[in-house]
């Protein structure tokens, strides 16, 4: 059998208390994935950064203000009920993006995309980016481009791939060594390895020996209050962005700070106090 016997579910957990907002992940991602740059990148709504770092604030006045940073790669949503119908995948008219049931990674073919941008409209995380411009590097600088990631042409959408090419390389190694196992450290994304604060942990959510599984403790059962939500963390410090929409991201966030966790989703007045300590948690196991 060529396919892996057991389906992986690659995911990420980012410790927002460790994150310093330094931007290493963003730059590592850009360098790894041949992301181009323009003369003026100050229009952040038109700036290709698969990994974007948002600045959060608790909104309080001086000196009670608090800030934190939230790195946002593609969330690799499993979609409602975790069936693989991610918001973006289900809307692509040309099947240029799909959900890899063997990895849980939302993959895509840039050369198939014809640039309708419907997936961008569908993604509430703004994780998808459009190549408004031809990718152009200053003369000679194209020499550092990596052949493992194909540079995208103008007019197509792109996004974080969880450095899938690194998975491909790890698999090639495994094929060569004639083993089925891909060790945890053989496949790590560029942002994970770059993070100087060690705030990003990447691994297989389905593999209990992986660190991410131990931190996230994903609930295998749907949330009893909302059956669309699957894989809620049973760690009360861990949350996902916009969890209630049922997108089922595979990127989890972790913080000791309540105000940071609260910003992960929208809450009606008074709602947070009811749910903050109620974590998918106790319901099962």
């Amino acid at each position: 059998m060529i396919q892996d016997k057991k389906a992986h579910k690659f995911g990420m957990v980012i410790d927002l208390d460790k994150c310093t907002g330094c931007g290493s992940c963003t730059v590592s991602c850009m360098a790894e994935n041949n992301i181009p740059f323009k003369e003026d990148e100050s229009d952040k709504k038109d700036s290709l950064t698969w990994m974007r770092v948002y600045k959060l604030t608790n909104g309080k006045p001086f000196p009670e203000t608090q800030t934190a940073y939230l790195p946002r790669p593609c969330q690799h949503c499993g979609g409602k009920g975790d069936h693989g119908h991610s918001p973006c995948v289900s809307v692509c008219p040309a099947t240029a993006t799909d959900y890899g049931y063997d990895t849980g990674i939302v993959s895509q073919i840039y050369t198939r995309c014809f640039g309708c941008r419907y997936c961008m409209a569908a993604c509430p995380y703004h994780a998808r980016y459009f190549n408004w411009w031809d990718p152009v590097w200053p003369e000679g600088m194209e020499k550092y481009l990596s052949p493992n990631v194909s540079p995208r042409m103008r007019g197509v959408v792109e996004k974080c791939s969880f450095c899938y090419h690194r998975y491909q390389l790890a698999r090639e190694q495994a094929y060569f060594d004639e083993t089925d196992e891909i060790p945890e450290d053989a496949y790590q994304t560029a942002c994970t390895t770059a993070c100087p604060a060690g705030a990003i942990i990447f691994g297989d959510l389905n593999n209990p020996s992986h660190k991410i599984h131990q931190i996230v403790k994903p609930d295998p059962h749907p949330d009893p209050l909302n059956h669309d939500v699957v894989g809620k963390s049973r760690n009360p410090k861990v949350f996902r962005l916009l969890e209630r929409l049922g997108t089922n991201p595979k990127v989890y966030y972790m913080s000791e700070r309540e105000w940071v966790r609260k910003l992960g989703d929208s809450y009606l007045e008074g709602e947070w106090d009811k749910v903050k300590n109620h974590h998918g948690a106790a319901s099962h196991d």
Partner: peptide, 14 residues
Amino acid sequence: EETGHKGYCFQCHK
């Protein structure tokens, strides 16, 4: 024929 599945985008694309 061999794997039962045509594969996902990234299986053959980069």
